[in-house]
């Protein structure tokens, strides 16, 4: 069970938290401007990083606040937690993992978000 440092409350065991998956996927202000492919990418396509990823956590059974964490998905070590709205910190030497690919369907090149 992970030990997670809520930026508001301090270190708490994982059972107090709910994980919200990959962070920094902003809902567009006007979703109607996205075509079906872009919308699918936003809803369903994920980096699923092996290495350091930024992910969302909610201190559900605590302050109920959302925040972000940098966690290495190989070691499960949490490198840092930070406030929602802050940009993703980059920590020297971290592997970037599978965060850079394009959509697997359909044709590549024309759909970059």
């Amino acid at each position: 069970m992970l030990l997670i440092k809520c930026p508001h409350c301090g270190e708490r065991p994982e059972i107090e938290f709910h994980c919200g998956g990959e962070a920094h996927i902003a809902r567009p202000l006007d979703p109607s401007q996205l075509d079906d492919v872009q919308w699918a990418e936003l809803l369903f396509y994920r980096a699923n990083t092996k290495g350091v990823m930024a992910e969302r956590w909610n201190h559900l059974h605590g302050c109920q606040r959302w925040f972000n964490a940098l966690r290495n998905t190989v070691s499960d070590k949490i490198l840092r937690t930070y406030m929602m709205g802050e940009p993703r910190p980059y920590i020297g030497g971290e592997a970037q993992g599978a965060a850079t690919g394009t959509l697997s369907y359909p044709a590549p090149g024309e759909r970059s978000k």
Partner: peptide, 13 residues
């Protein structure tokens, strides 16, 4: 409640 909090805190800020 979780759904609403999520949108309130992270999208409709």
């Amino acid at each position: 409640l979780g759904h609403m909090e999520d949108y309130l805190q992270t999208e409709f800020t």
